[in-house]
Simulated assay, not measured.
Amino acid sequence: MMSIPVLLITQDDNLWEHWRKINAQSWAPARGHDLSDLDRWRQHGRALVILDRQLPKLPDWDDPQWKKHFHDLQIVIASIRPNDHEASRTFTAGSSGYLHAYSPIPVLESALQSVSAGSVWMGRSLVNRILQEIDRRLKPGQESKAQAWADSLTLREKEVAQRAAVGRSNQEIADELGITERTVRAHMTAIFEKLGVADRLTLALKVHGISAN
């Protein structure tokens, strides 16, 4: 399998040394130093990028130039002080991911894999906030109209899926149902496989009868 080129934009040498530890058999890292490198990357027909949030003079997320960059590049924003508010702003602007700059290498690689496949990568706390907001905005009876999603699930799997879809953590689900967290994880694996979803956000959309397209 050919390695996928990924542009790592940072002026921090320590951060660059951390990022470049990604598996060379899967990824071909190249270093960039500022936003001008995005144009060079685009001209070479490449798209995958991790961008250091701490770059000097980085434009505000409302700046129109982000629309151009996010339109045809898959950019993951990496911050040493990540927070849900900024994450929401970057996603509104069009980013493909948001994570801690010093995330463990397996997490970085998972994010790159997800984004390169066309998905979005975000932290669990933000996912839970979105799930809770989806649940809050549901019209009465909307979920009952979309019960076909549960046809392939056992009763317990349905109970787990419904709770995960409104932002409950594995431990919270375990406490509510009187089972272990390990059992919840096993149920979630089965649910994802049966429903053909890869994450909790997509699961929530399916449970609530909302199109992901």
Rank of each mutant, 00 (worst) to 15 (best):
V127F: 07
V127G: 06
V127K: 08
V127E: 12
V127Q: 13
N128Y: 07
N128K: 13
N128G: 06
N128W: 10
N128S: 10
N128C: 09
N128I: 06
R129G: 03
R129A: 04
R129M: 05
R129V: 03
R129D: 05
R129P: 00
R129N: 07
R129H: 07
R129L: 06
I130W: 15
I130F: 13
I130E: 06
I130H: 13
L131D: 00
L131F: 02
L131Q: 05
L131S: 02
L131W: 00
L131I: 01
L131C: 06
L131G: 01
Q132D: 02
Q132S: 06
Q132K: 10
Q132M: 11
E133Y: 13
E133P: 00
E133D: 12
E133F: 13
E133L: 09
I134V: 09
I134Y: 10
I134P: 02
I134E: 03
I134W: 07
I134M: 07
D135G: 10
D135A: 15
D135N: 15
D135L: 05
R136D: 15
R136K: 14
R136E: 14
R136M: 09
R136V: 08
R137H: 08
R137W: 03
R137Q: 08
R137Y: 04
R137I: 02
L138I: 00
L138R: 04
L138S: 01
K139T: 11
K139L: 07
K139A: 13
K139D: 04
K139H: 07
P140S: 05
P140R: 09
P140M: 03
P140E: 04
P140I: 05
P140V: 05
G141V: 04
G141Q: 06
G141D: 02
G141N: 06
G141L: 04
G141C: 04
G141T: 07
G141A: 09
G141K: 03
G141Y: 06
G141S: 09
G141P: 08
Q142I: 06
Q142V: 05
Q142S: 11
Q142E: 13
Q142N: 06
E143R: 15
S144K: 09
S144C: 06
S144W: 13
K145E: 15
K145C: 13
K145Q: 15
A146M: 00
A146V: 00
A146H: 07
A146P: 00
A146Q: 02
A146T: 02
A146Y: 02
Q147V: 10
Q147D: 05
A148T: 01
A148W: 00
A148H: 01
A148E: 00
A148I: 00
W149Q: 00
W149V: 08
W149M: 01
W149T: 00
A150V: 04
A150Q: 13
A150W: 08
A150M: 09
A150D: 09
A150P: 06
A150Y: 08
A150E: 08
A150K: 11
D151N: 14
D151V: 12
D151I: 15
S152D: 12
L153H: 04
L153G: 03
L153W: 02
T154M: 02
T154D: 02
T154E: 00
T154R: 04
T154K: 06
T154V: 02
T154H: 05
T154Q: 03
L155N: 11
L155I: 12
L155Y: 09
R156M: 11
R156N: 11
R156Y: 03
R156A: 13
R156D: 05
E157F: 08
E157C: 09
E157L: 09
E157T: 10
E157D: 10
K158M: 13
